[in-house]
C-alpha cells in the first residue's frame, strides 16, 4: 500500500478543517481543544491542536492523506513534522479577514522553506460579500504570477476538488519540467 500526503495550512480560522471535511471519505480525525484565548473564542468553539486528518482512498494500493495544520503559532513546532514527505501543500487564506493576510504570507514562506514542493493558495470564503477578490489578494500577499491563487469555498466539495486538482496539475507540471 502506497500512501501520499498533502498538507493544508493557513492562519487560525482560515477554513482548513472545513476544507478537509468537505472531501475526506472518513470523518475527519480532529484533535481539537476548547479555545481559551479571547480572539480565538469569538471565531469558533474549538480549534485544531496538532492536526486534522482526512483520507481519500484511490484504490487498493494507493491512499491520499490530507493533513491540516494547527493555525496558531504556538503549535508551529508541528508544522515541520507534517511537512515531511508531503507531495504538495495548500495555503488557505480567509479572504474576508485582511488582518490575517500577513500571517498567511508568513506561513506560506515557512512551508516553502521546509520543502521545495509545489503549492497553491486558496482564497477561501469567496462567497461572502466582504471577501477580497483574488487579484487584490495576489498583490496584498505578494504572490508571484506563476503561483496559482484560486477562489475557494471550503464547505463546497466541488470548490475543494478544484483546488486539489490544481495542486496536482502543478505537481505534474513540475515533474515534467524536471524530467
Amino acid at each position: 500500500m502506497q500512501t501520499v500526503k498533502m498538507v493544508i495550512t493557513g492562519p487560525f480560522s482560515s477554513g482548513k478543517t472545513q476544507f478537509i471535511q468537505s472531501i475526506s471519505e472518513i470523518d475527519v480525525v480532529r484533535t481539537d481543544e476548547r479555545i481559551t484565548g479571547d480572539a480565538e473564542q469569538i471565531e469558533k468553539e474549538s480549534t485544531t491542536v496538532a492536526m486534522d486528518f482526512g483520507r481519500i482512498t484511490v484504490d487498493d494500493d494507493l491512499v491520499l492523506y490530507l493533513f491540516g495544520t494547527p493555525g496558531q503559532r504556538r503549535f508551529d513546532f508541528m508544522w515541520e513534522i507534517l511537512a515531511e514527505g508531503m507531495l504538495g501543500f495548500v495555503v488557505m487564506v480567509d479572504s474576508t479577514k485582511p488582518e490575517t493576510f500577513r500571517e498567511a504570507k508568513s506561513i506560506l514562506e515557512t512551508f516553502r522553506a521546509y520543502a521545495p514542493t509545489p503549492y497553491v493558495v486558496a482564497a477561501n470564503k469567496q462567497d461572502l460579500t466582504d471577501a477580497w477578490n483574488v487579484d487584490d489578494l495576489r498583490i496584498a500577499l505578494r504572490i508571484e504570477e506563476g503561483v496559482k491563487l484560486l477562489p475557494c469555498i471550503a464547505n463546497d466539495k466541488e470548490s475543494v476538488k478544484d483546488v486539489l486538482l490544481e495542486l496536482l496539475y502543478s505537481i505534474l507540471e513540475e515533474m515534467e519540467a524536471n524530467s
Binding site: 502506497q2 501520499v4 500526503k5 481519500i56 484511490v58 484504490d59 494507493l62 491520499l64 515541520e80 511537512a83 515531511e84 514527505g85 508531503m86 507531495l87 522553506a113 521546509y114 520543502a115 521545495p116 514542493t117 486538482l165 496536482l168 496539475y169 505537481i171 505534474l172 515533474m175
Partner: peptide
C-alpha cells in the same frame, strides 16, 4: 530540509 516524496507520474495521474 524534509525529504521530497518520491512518487511516479502514474501515482499523480491516479490521484487526479
Amino acid at each position: 530540509i524534509p525529504r521530497k516524496p518520491q512518487v511516479e507520474r502514474g501515482v499523480v495521474d491516479r490521484l487526479i
